Amino acid sequence: MTEDQIGLEVGHARVLHPGPLRWLRALGWMVALFVISALVYAGAQMISNPLFHSGGRLLEVLEVTAICLAGLGLYALVVRLGEGRWPEELDPRKAPLDLTIGLVVGALMLSMAVAGLYALGVYEISGPRSASPWGAIAMAVESGVMEELLMRAIVLRLLMRAFGIWPALVLQAALFGALHLANPNATATAAAAIAIEAGLMLAGFYLLTGRLWVSIGVHAAWNFTQGWVWGASVSGVPVSESWLVSKPKAGAPEFLSGGAFGPEASAPAMVVGTAVAIVVLWWAWKKGNLKVRADLAGFVSDR
């Protein structure tokens, strides 16, 4: 690996070219990309959210997937026009393996958190029962693809371009947690848990690989496993269709169980997510990806 290949590709040309006020141009570009992608996300949610409550059908899952793929394609086209590059963060050649790894890791992480809740005696689990998985699949695809596109490929990447890695990591995690305050049953504790265990952990996978696919897989599998497999609330949203049913026992301390928000606000999920975040961020640091790749002019700039 040559010197100019070390670090993360965050954009270096056209609207992000070196020069005065690059940080401000990066922020403006971030807002523009965020708004464009958020409109696509809203379209996906219009289909997937009703499915999450009613059980859903394969056709609607395919529609959500098509919308999300269109969102990724639109992002790639706009980045090509605005930054003069095809985004390596969406390299399709790496997608199959990365997604597979992410799906396995996400399912294992969430299951470890639920196992911790059960071992602590604060959760009760019943079932199995007959239930359609399509609504949960639609929700997992929608949230995994679009939230990772928004928060990691757009917000984290362009905050890195503007301010460097550490402010970018903290700000994107804080924003990710704060956005979950709009969810049902949300609390400040739940938002903080999401910021730390998920915001940092999912960013870590993006920084480690330089691509979005592992983060998408982890996010999607985490939500699907939490909602359909274990039947627990997903970010405060109760599920109606699930294979098992998991919920806090009456009188269980909310800081341990996560309360009505679900396992994501629980102590075991915090331990699992934070531990994985530390390991993955350390790995990304060892790889040299906690810095911006050198500009084409041959100098490294984090600003």
Rank of each mutant, 00 (worst) to 15 (best):
Trp243Ile: 03
Arg93Asn: 14
Met109Gly: 04
Met270Asn: 10
Gly177Glu: 10
Val145Trp: 10
Asn183Ser: 03
Ser215Trp: 06
Thr209His: 06
Leu156Asp: 01
Val218Leu: 02
Arg22Asn: 05
Gly71Cys: 02
Phe34Thr: 15
Glu241Tyr: 12
Arg293Trp: 02
Arg157Ala: 08
Thr65Gln: 07
Trp283Ala: 11
Asn183Met: 04
Ser266Ile: 02
Ser240Arg: 13
Ile137Tyr: 05
Gly19Cys: 08
Arg129Phe: 12
Pro92Ala: 04
Leu149Met: 06
Ser257Gly: 03
His219Ala: 13
Ala162Thr: 11
Leu149Gln: 07
Gly19Ile: 13
Thr100Gly: 15
Gly73Tyr: 11
Ala13Lys: 15
Ala188Gly: 12
Ala188Pro: 04
Leu39Cys: 01
Lys94Glu: 10
Ala191Tyr: 14
Asn49Ile: 14
Ser130Ala: 14
Leu158Phe: 14
Ser235Thr: 07
Val237Gly: 01
Phe255Cys: 04
Ala232Pro: 01
Val31Trp: 13
Ala26Ser: 14
Met201Arg: 09
Ser37Ile: 14
Leu90Trp: 10
Pro128Met: 08
Thr2Asn: 11
Thr209Val: 03
Arg85Asp: 00
Thr274Asp: 01
Phe34Trp: 15
Gly102His: 14
Val104Phe: 15
Pro96Lys: 07
Leu27Thr: 11
Val279Pro: 01
Ala76Gln: 13
Trp222Ser: 00
Met160Ile: 09
Pro87Lys: 12
Leu39Gln: 09
Ala277Asn: 02
Ser37Gln: 15
Val105Ser: 00
Leu212Phe: 05
Ala138Ile: 08
Trp228Cys: 01
Leu117Lys: 06
Leu244Tyr: 15
Gly298Arg: 09
Met160Asn: 05
Ala131Asn: 07
Val141Pro: 03
Leu281Gly: 09
Ala26Pro: 02
Pro184Trp: 13
Ser130Thr: 11
Glu3Met: 10
Pro133Cys: 07
Ala188Met: 14
Gly43Glu: 07
Ala297Met: 03
His17Ser: 15
Val10Leu: 08
Val218Cys: 04
Leu99Trp: 12
Ile194Met: 04
Gly251Lys: 04
Arg152Val: 03
Ile47Glu: 04
Trp86Ile: 14
Lys94Phe: 08
Glu241Leu: 06
Ala192Val: 15
Glu88Ser: 15
Cys68Leu: 06
Val237Glu: 05
Ala182Cys: 02
Ser126Leu: 08
Ser301Arg: 10
Leu103Arg: 13
Trp134Asn: 00
Thr225Trp: 10
Leu181Lys: 11
Glu148Leu: 08
